[in-house]
């Protein structure tokens, strides 16, 4: 019997959503796709379409207006899926903690599998996070 599930980690397609971060982590995610870091050699495609995604990269401390959108996107991704919180503010709220329009990290709304720290997270950290996410994806 062929174990289809182990191929999950060979072809992770990424959906990226910004829930109110400062763009620092977002441009580092773009830098990850660039020739020096080249995420595509791990099979990563930046799909931009929740229906075809496996890994959900979220940046930002979850502002009130992004709340519903994040939930919608999360529910549109077919199982199995992993959520990677990129950046300090996405993990805990970071510097934006307790500001009046934020919810202190996305784990107040959706389950997070991998926390990537750093302000801003460097591309190496983000890649580490994605590799970690692949291990979790295999187990799901």
């Amino acid at each position: 019997m062929l174990h289809i599930k182990r191929f999950l980690k060979k072809s992770p397609w990424v959906l990226h959503y910004n829930t109110g971060s400062c763009n620092g982590c977002d441009i580092e995610i773009l830098a990850c796709l660039s020739p020096r870091y080249d995420l595509e050699r791990l099979g990563v495609l930046n799909t931009g379409n929740p229906k075809q995604a496996d890994i959900f990269l979220v940046t930002g401390p979850l502002t009130h207006r992004c709340h519903d959108r994040l939930l919608q996107l999360y529910s549109q991704i077919p199982d199995p899926k992993v959520v990677v919180a990129v950046g300090s503010c996405t993990c805990t709220g970071g510097v934006f903690k307790d500001m009046y329009n934020v919810n202190n990290g996305i784990d107040s709304l959706i389950p997070v599998d991998v926390y990537v720290p750093g302000c801003a997270s460097s591309p190496e950290l983000i890649m580490d996070g994605i590799v970690k996410a692949l291990e979790i994806l295999e187990g799901k």
């Binding site: 109110g20 620092g24 934006f96 009046y100 329009n101």
Partner: peptide, 26 residues
């Protein structure tokens, strides 16, 4: 308005003037 976090308010209530420089960087 998706990214509105309320930094202007935090700069005057949560952080001292020496810290604000690092907050507004964000």
């Amino acid at each position: 308005g998706f990214v509105h976090r309320g930094i202007e308010k935090a700069c005057t209530e949560k952080f001292e003037y020496k810290q604000v420089g690092y907050v507004v960087a964000r």
